[in-house]
């Protein structure tokens, strides 16, 4: 830590504190994401244990593809919101979050539709894997949307400061995480 603080010798003590604080937040967030990726790893494995690589022909490939495309678009808007935030542009951030919420929300709703109108029997091994996997994606998606809404409301009420900036960014990065994990699940469920 001493060596790290030494590199910013021109910074005042207060700024060093903020830098350390941000590094702490980022690393804890990374640990959290690492921890959260364990269930995804498990559920992908579980599907192959249960049913191998069988993909039923009755699967609704169109809806799956559309929702995945929507979620990928929302990934880009989420990254754009991070860029806006790094430029300390609260309004731009809010606009990008709105876009992410809209597109990502539709994508998540389509996932709920898939869960509801699953064309395969839940008592089959593919069916149970499908339901559990897409359920995990939906739950994490709803949490991600909730966090985005919180960030949006907070930026409206509190605004952006150097100190608070990272919290907004991490809210967006969590959404990026849910989308990337969904991509893995999509490839596993619909393609392989």
């Amino acid at each position: 830590m001493t060596s790290r603080t030494a590199e910013g010798t021109n910074l005042s003590g207060y700024h060093v504190e903020i830098q350390i604080e941000k590094r702490k937040m980022r690393s804890a967030f990374a640990i959290f994401l690492f921890s959260m990726s364990v269930p995804y790893f498990m559920i992908i494995n579980l599907r192959y244990i249960m049913i191998g690589s069988f993909v039923p022909p009755a699967l609704d490939q169109v809806t799956g593809a559309i929702q995945t495309i929507l979620l990928v678009i929302s990934l880009f808007t989420a990254v754009a919101s991070v860029r806006r935030m790094q430029k300390v542009d609260g309004v731009g951030y809010k606009r990008m979050i709105d876009a992410t919420l809209l597109i990502g929300g539709i994508g998540t709703l389509m996932q709920v539709y898939e869960l509801w109108y699953h064309p395969m029997n839940p008592m089959s091994h593919y069916g149970e894997s499908f339901l559990a996997t897409i359920g995990l994606a939906i739950v994490m998606g709803i949490i991600g949307l909730f966090v985005l809404v919180a960030g949006r409301e907070r930026v409206k009420r509190v605004g952006v400061t150097d100190e608070k900036q990272l919290g907004y960014e991490l809210a967006s990065w969590f959404w990026v995480f849910t989308v990337i994990t969904w991509l893995a699940l999509y490839i596993e469920l619909y393609l392989l």
């Binding site: 921890s35 498990m42 249960m50 008592m123 149970e128 339901l131 559990a132």
Partner: peptide, 29 residues
């Protein structure tokens, strides 16, 4: 950090087995 999410997901699946029900860990699973 590694193993607690693992057991949590396992228990969620076990709950789904009862509530939905899914056949993950039943005698036919």
């Amino acid at each position: 950090i590694i193993w607690l999410p693992e057991i949590e997901l396992t228990f969620v699946l076990a709950i789904l087995d009862r509530v939905v029900p899914l056949p993950f860990f039943t005698a036919v699973g």
